[in-house]
Amino acid sequence: MSDGAEMRATPGWVALWPALMLAIFFLVPFGIMLAVSVSHRDPAGAFIPGFELTHYARFLSAFFAKVMAVSVGVSVAAAAICVVLAFPFTVFLASMSHRTQTVALVVLLSVLSLSEVIIGFSLSTLLSKTAGISNLFYWLGLISEPQAYTPSLFALVTGLCYIGFPFAVLVLYPPVSRLDPEIVEAARVMGASASRAFFGVVVPNLRGAIVGAFILVFVFTLGSYLLPQLLGRSEDWTLSVHITDQAIYQTNLPFAAAMSIFLMLVALALVGLASLAGRQRRAA
């Protein structure tokens, strides 16, 4: 097929508007943020232009090390739980009827799109003493009296799993549904048990997709901002919470910007890694 410009359905200038919008409202803000991150702190709330690396130097502090440990720890835990639960879920779902898949996707998308504040409120109600699940345990005789499970690290990880699970399914869904069902059938015909076929054929074929999903869910939960405040204790606050806290309440915009740049580099590196992991499998 010829690639002549006159054969294209759209002229090149259609890209002008999106290019302009994304440059002004996405690239320029990053440029400003970069400049702010090396500027001087103005305790009145803004920043004084300049060049200093003091805000980046604070990454070496014990405070920052602890924040990073908490952020990475809870997100890794949540991402691992999500992928372990979501992978079989997605494989099973993809083999079901179109109608069942649609219903399940509606539920997943509705949960995924819900505001974190609503999810945080719902889960803290579910884990609370007066309306929560402990009343059910009490009624069943499992515990001696109803109790609150929030705020706690457990509640926070539960919340992150709640938002991460639909995301994990949706990331896994395209590669899983593209997997040829015949290769599983072939394994079964050759005498493999259902679980053997699952772990011996399905899992290895989708290794790249699983690794990719794990990383993307990790980045996704790393971005959670409200759940650590609603479900966790203040020592469970993650990097996202501290960035906002520094920017708005501690009036240390440069430090917030420096942390933001750091988070962005980490996220970009990880997303790049995830797409690499996904591609490797497809090429093989």
């Binding site: 409202f25 996405f26 803000p29 990053f30 400003i32 943020m33 980045v219 790393l222 971005g223 901002y225 996202s240 960035i243 906002t244 920017a247 917030a256 910007a257 933001s260 988070l263 962005m264 996220a267 970009l268 997303v271």
Partner: peptide, 11 residues
Amino acid sequence: TLPPVISALGF
């Protein structure tokens, strides 16, 4: 794709 707090601070 990026954690939303980054865009938020940028904006």
